[in-house]
Amino acid sequence: MKEITRIIAFYETLKRKADVACALAMVVYVEGSSYRRTGARMLVSEDGFWEGGISGGCLEGDALKKARMAILKSKPELVRYDTTKGDDNQIGVGLGCNGVIDVLFIPVDFENENNPIEILKKSFENNNKPLVVITNSLKEPELLGKLFYFESKQSIDFLKNHLDVGLFSEEILALEKSKNYNIDNELRLFVEILPKPITVYLFGNQYDIYPLIELLKMLYWEVRIVSEPNKIQNRENLTIIAPSDFSENLLNKNSAALLMSHSLEIDKKNLRKLTTSTVKYIGMLGPKTRSERILNELAAEGTKIDSNKIFAPTGLDLGASTPEEIALSIVAELKAVFSGRNGGFLRERELPINERNQEIFKFN
């Protein structure tokens, strides 16, 4: 989310200048290993500046040239980088990535309210609606690079000559992750499911919440502090919710809650409120015996608790001791939980680090 936010900010700067053209480079297909996955993007200005990235740095140099060419031609272009071949003329050879990466370069027209960055902004403003980009079109080449966000079947009505709009709309609505589609071997689409923003609710006002706030802001996650406002330092640019105003209805499956009050009774009271919410993660600061006491007392009074949501003590086992180290262990565990990972050592992982898109799904 941070990268997209910075790309949009860079775009706004270029738009105000109005005399520096730019192009969007977007990874739309990956097969095998690569540093970045589908949806990675960078915005390149014709004067050689850029924001974002499509690799670990190995492809950016060539991407600058390709982006400038797209600007010059005022025409999108799909470029394949194949680092699996031993061709010395192939960009990326010798890096050991062993992957195939398709990058779509789309020139950005500031005057067009439906240019790719404006569409990205609109998707954000509409609860991260799925993005659809046409990555190949044999019969209608002018469709290459068309990018739009999906809101209803009317969004893809112009594709009715290629597919069943109603069925494909249902397909998009059911997606949980990005996919590539091949339509009758003449049209390829990349449907990107943008991640929903993660909101972390911090229940507490002691000094150890501040390193957490800094780390979460660095990730561009949303932070909500549940506390009496007058107990929070440097309240500017912070969202603070008074305990009397807090409701479990504020939480959803993209939310996490951290109980950090340092008061057993207050943490127990807050946990009681959270048990009926749809929150994905509830972390409890402090030793295991303390958490077990709170959970046992709530169980004794008849409060039902989903133990799968409870992480007590909160955080990964990093040997953390200072507030900053504890914040790191908590944020690392949050990331692991929301990514569906266990948070172990990567050297012990038998599967690839990232899921590999080795299939283009057919739809006809």
Results as ranks from 00 to 15, higher is better:
2 K>P: 10
2 K>E: 12
5 T>A: 11
7 I>T: 08
9 A>E: 14
12 E>M: 06
12 E>W: 00
14 L>E: 01
18 A>V: 00
29 Y>H: 15
32 G>K: 05
33 S>H: 11
37 R>D: 14
38 T>F: 00
41 R>A: 09
44 V>E: 03
49 F>E: 13
51 E>N: 04
51 E>M: 05
52 G>A: 03
56 G>R: 09
58 C>T: 01
58 C>S: 12
64 L>G: 04
65 K>P: 10
66 K>V: 04
66 K>E: 14
67 A>N: 08
69 M>V: 12
75 K>M: 14
80 R>W: 02
86 G>Q: 12
86 G>T: 07
89 N>M: 06
101 I>G: 08
103 V>Y: 03
104 L>F: 03
108 V>E: 07
108 V>Y: 00
111 E>N: 14
113 E>H: 12
113 E>M: 11
116 P>Y: 02
116 P>F: 00
119 I>Q: 12
119 I>E: 13
120 L>H: 01
130 P>V: 04
133 V>K: 07
136 N>V: 08
137 S>R: 05
139 K>S: 09
144 L>R: 06
155 S>D: 09
156 I>L: 02
157 D>L: 06
158 F>H: 11
162 H>W: 05
164 D>G: 02
165 V>K: 04
169 S>R: 07
172 I>M: 05
173 L>S: 15
173 L>M: 13
175 L>M: 12
182 N>A: 06
183 I>S: 01
184 D>C: 07
184 D>V: 02
185 N>G: 08
186 E>L: 03
190 F>M: 09
193 I>A: 12
196 K>Y: 08
206 Q>G: 15
209 I>E: 04
210 Y>G: 11
210 Y>S: 08
225 I>R: 05
232 I>L: 02
236 E>Q: 14
238 L>R: 13
242 A>G: 13
247 S>P: 09
248 E>A: 15
253 K>Q: 14
255 S>W: 00
255 S>E: 09
258 L>T: 04
259 L>I: 03
261 S>W: 05
261 S>E: 11
263 S>K: 14
264 L>K: 15
270 N>C: 10
271 L>R: 01
272 R>A: 13
279 V>M: 04
280 K>Q: 15
280 K>W: 02
281 Y>A: 01
289 T>R: 15
291 S>H: 04
295 L>V: 11
295 L>H: 06
296 N>C: 05
304 K>I: 12
309 K>F: 00
309 K>D: 10
311 F>A: 07
312 A>I: 01
314 T>C: 14
315 G>S: 06
316 L>S: 03
318 L>F: 11
319 G>H: 02
320 A>K: 03
320 A>D: 01
320 A>M: 06
320 A>V: 04
320 A>I: 01
321 S>F: 07
323 P>Q: 03
327 A>I: 01
329 S>L: 00
334 L>V: 05
336 A>D: 06
339 S>P: 10
343 G>Q: 02
344 G>W: 00
346 L>A: 13
351 L>Y: 08
351 L>E: 15
352 P>W: 01
359 E>L: 13
361 F>Q: 13
363 F>I: 02
